[in-house]
Simulated assay, not measured.
Amino acid sequence: MKTITIKDETATGKILHELTLQVANELITVKDIIEARVKAEVEEYNRKAPEKFNGLVQPSEVEQRLNIDRNKRNFKPVDAEKQLYIALQAFQQNGFFVLVDDVQADELDEEVLVTDHTSISFIKLTPLVGG
């Protein structure tokens, strides 16, 4: 297992959020990175029940309303697969950029060699809202 730290940054380089993840292999794809991130964020949200979902892709307005009172029986957890689909689509449509060691990754199947010094940053260009 390798540990990677993912940073959310503004276009000017200001760090907004950091997330540490475990990945199984040293050689992974950009798609694997996005998938690991989205699944970890959704899992943490569904488990911890924070007031606000702070992830790469925001749940739709309807989902957010359903999740406001987590003590109600009608709570509907955020769907990780749905969020992943939206995130992958957003990457392909330049909704956000992924920088690996300060170099922009262009393709989902682009391979990344994870070392102790690998730097991965996400730069969001537009608000990403799920469905």
Rank of each mutant, 00 (worst) to 15 (best):
E26N: 06
P59L: 03
E110V: 11
A80R: 04
A11E: 15
T118G: 11
V42E: 03
A11T: 15
L99Q: 00
E43Q: 12
E26D: 11
D116N: 11
V42H: 05
N71G: 05
D101N: 15
A24Y: 03
M1H: 10
T12V: 10
I15W: 03
A80L: 03
Q58A: 08
P77I: 09
F75L: 14
K76G: 06
E110Y: 04
F53C: 10
L66I: 08
P59N: 00
R37I: 02
A40M: 02
E43K: 10
H17N: 04
D116M: 09
N94L: 08
N71I: 02
V78I: 14
E111P: 05
F75I: 14
N67W: 11
V114S: 04
I4K: 00
H17V: 09
Q89F: 07
K31S: 08
T126I: 15
V30M: 00
E110T: 14
T12W: 03
A36W: 03
N67Y: 06
L128K: 10
S119P: 03
L99I: 02
T3M: 11
V62P: 00
I68E: 11
L125D: 11
N94F: 07
G130Q: 05
V38T: 13
T29G: 08
V114W: 02
L88C: 08
L27T: 08
D116E: 13
K14N: 12
H117P: 10
L84K: 15
I123M: 10
L88F: 01
T29D: 13
G131H: 07
K72W: 12
V78P: 02
F96L: 04
I4H: 02
R70D: 15
M1C: 10
N46Y: 01
E26I: 02
F97E: 13
D79S: 15
E61W: 07
Q58V: 02
V103L: 11
K76V: 09
V23N: 04
K82N: 13
L16K: 14
H117T: 15
E51F: 08
Q92P: 01
V62I: 13
I34W: 02
F122Y: 11
L56F: 00
F53L: 09
G13I: 00
R47I: 15
Y45C: 01
N74T: 15
T126V: 15
T12I: 07
A49Q: 13
Q92K: 09
T115E: 04
M1P: 12
I86E: 02
E44R: 14
T115F: 05
V42A: 06
E26G: 04
A11I: 14
Y85F: 13
K52G: 00
E26P: 00
N67C: 08
A11V: 15
K52M: 10
I33A: 06
V23T: 14
D109N: 15
V57A: 01
L125S: 13
V78Y: 12
T29K: 01
I6Q: 04
I4T: 05
L19C: 12
V78H: 06
E18F: 03
N46A: 09
K14A: 13
F75W: 12
P59A: 00
L113E: 09
G130F: 06
P59C: 00
S119K: 14
V114G: 04
F97T: 12
E51Q: 11
R37Q: 08
